[in-house]
């Protein structure tokens, strides 16, 4: 198993959910991850070694998401809210907590949906995918300073978003 396959096995869930947060539609996210992986597979000879591979793969994923968003998704409804309540394990939180968590998740998704694509991408890559600012810069092919300013702008907009504000208060 080469490095690319290992990444797919280990990081598929994270990549898929990254695409979900960016595209807001599970089916589109699944297609985007597949497209990204096929791209990476096709050009795997140029895959960097070591830690540099991760931002490279996320760059391919981000590109796939955005190309689909631009080319296909705007022509149809792309919002298909996830329903995770029913799928929670039996030993998880109780129904009341689950409903609250689901409500917060919807609020967060709503706040993310209201962000423009370029801000939503850096937020998702930073706070969900766990990439550093330098890795995000590689992934979106922008300067680290640009990433920093976009993150700042995204945080400012999220803070002003009423849904996220309520979710934060609820979580606190």
């Amino acid at each position: 198993m080469d490095e690319l396959e290992r990444w797919l096995q280990e990081d598929y869930a994270r990549a898929y959910r990254t695409a979900c947060l960016m595209m807001r539609n599970p089916a589109d996210a699944e297609d985007a991850v597949q497209e990204a992986f096929l791209r990476a597979w096709r050009f795997r000879a140029s895959l960097p070694d070591g830690p540099a591979a991760r931002p490279w793969l996320y760059r391919v994923l981000v590109n796939a998401c955005h190309s689909r968003l631009r080319a296909e998704i705007p022509r149809r409804d792309r919002t298909a809210p996830a329903t995770g309540v029913d799928r929670r394990p039996a030993d998880g939180p109780g129904p009341a907590e689950a409903v609250e968590a689901d409500h917060r998740a919807s609020a967060v998704r709503g706040a993310l949906d209201d962000l423009p694509d370029h801000l939503r991408a850096v937020v998702v890559l930073r706070y969900w995918s766990g990439l550093s600012e330098a890795e995000i810069a590689t992934a979106i092919r922008r300067r680290p300073g640009t990433v920093k300013s976009r993150l700042h702008e995204a945080r400012r907009r999220l803070a002003a978003h009423p849904a996220l504000d309520a979710a934060l208060a609820e979580e606190a």
Partner: peptide
């Protein structure tokens, strides 16, 4: 402004609510 930890927690919750296809990979 939300802190990094708060955002990480919120996004983890939002992302975690999305079931992953079992045979996706």
């Amino acid at each position: 402004e939300p802190t990094d930890a708060e955002l990480e927690a919120l996004l983890a919750e939002a992302a975690g609510a999305q079931p992953v296809p079992a045979d996706g990979a």
